[in-house]
């Protein structure tokens, strides 16, 4: 073919994923700066034991963020996870209370099954009956929260009613690393692999990026959508057991409003609520930043009451900066046009 043809399809530049990498780099720089400032004011920050605390405290949030990312990728949202955490935590705690000898692994599985059941039901509503995700999960949030109170009769399960084995799920450690961190790392490896390297994982992006096209291409959109809610539920179920084990208390109002924290961390990590874009790497950064803000502010004598306000401001700043960067990119692209 001729040179003329070459002219229009050869770009000369090899575009990279400038936007996402740039944003993640920005987050990373911000985290480093925050850490640096905190370290200067309080040398106890970057110590092994404090970092261990930091990551252990971020583990549950980051596990949930993986599920939330998949849900947001399909243009959905899940408001029910706080309630699911409470239910699965309560169910496993009640079981431990009744049968103290139950092995911890069974407790974990039990919680995950409870979560899976909830997630599968929500997935059905969204994928099969086209109920808007925000409504389906809002409805389930109420139902599940109510169920949690009902099965516990409004009572708490406290630490003395839990077996030591159960409490060790969260407080124990493997080769000196907190179980929570180990579990989170395993989750990230499994789901990182699933999202980035399997067909179904990639189809989550496709479905969120362009649902109509996914239908035309014959991708089973409904199956993918169902799957993400089922996975989100399962992760929330797991998180529920970890939560109850960690705080050694199961209550009806465990994790009220936590769903919004998770969504905030996910968005902070660069996942778009309108679907299709977001990466696991960004997610990790988002969760870590959340954890750093949580952990570091008290160390530099920022009153804990400032934390929420600071967190909110950081989230707002992150999304707004993202918009401004994108706008600038568009203006740049226009300048390159001939007209």
């Amino acid at each position: 073919m001729t040179d003329e043809l070459r002219a229009s399809f050869r770009t000369g530049r090899r575009p990279v994923r400038f936007g996402e990498s740039f944003r993640e780099l920005g987050l990373l720089v911000f985290i480093v700066v925050v850490c640096g400032v905190v370290q200067l004011r309080n040398p106890n920050f970057l110590t092994l034991s404090n970092l261990r605390d930091l990551f252990a405290n971020t583990a549950i949030l980051s596990i949930l963020a993986v599920g939330m990312m998949m849900v947001l990728l399909t243009r959905g949202i899940d408001l029910s996870i706080g309630a699911t955490i409470a239910l699965s935590g309560m169910v496993s705690a009640l079981t431990v209370q009744a049968i103290p000898t139950i092995p911890p692994v069974v407790s974990v599985l039990e919680g995950m099954i409870v979560g899976l059941a909830v997630g599968a039901a929500i997935g059905m509503l969204v994928a099969k009956f086209d109920v808007l995700p925000i409504i389906a999960t809002l409805g389930f949030m109420n139902v599940i929260r109510g169920l949690t109170y009902l099965i516990s009769n409004g009572a708490w399960v406290s630490s003395y009613q839990m077996s030591a084995g159960f409490q060790r799920i969260a407080s124990g450690s493997l080769f000196g690393v907190s179980n929570l961190i180990v579990i989170a790392v395993v989750i990230y490896i499994v789901f990182g692999y699933f999202i980035n390297h399997t067909r179904t994982g990639r189809q989550i992006y496709a479905v969120g990026s362009n649902p109509e096209a996914a239908d035309i291409a014959g991708l089973s959109r409904r199956r993918v959508v169902w799957l993400v809610y089922a996975a989100m539920g399962t992760l929330a179920g797991l998180a529920g057991v970890l939560w109850v084990s960690k705080f050694a208390s199961a209550q009806g109002d465990t994790a009220v409003g936590y769903e919004l924290d998770v969504i905030a961390a996910t968005v902070l990590g660069g996942v778009s609520i309108s679907g299709g874009s977001g990466r696991v790497s960004g997610l990790i950064l988002g969760s870590v930043l959340f954890g750093v803000l949580d952990n570091a502010l008290p160390l530099v004598n920022v009153s804990p009451f400032w934390q929420e306000a600071i967190q909110g401001t950081v989230i707002l700043a992150a999304v707004v900066i993202n918009v401004l960067v994108k706008r600038n990119g568009q203006r740049y692209a226009l300048r390159k046009r001939v007209i």
């Binding site: 968005v267 400032w306 967190q311």
Partner: peptide
């Protein structure tokens, strides 16, 4: 997203 962020901020200010 916007009101999620302001939700956290407004309550945060209340705590402050």
């Amino acid at each position: 997203i916007i009101t999620l962020a302001t939700m956290i901020i407004y309550r945060g200010i209340a705590y402050v």
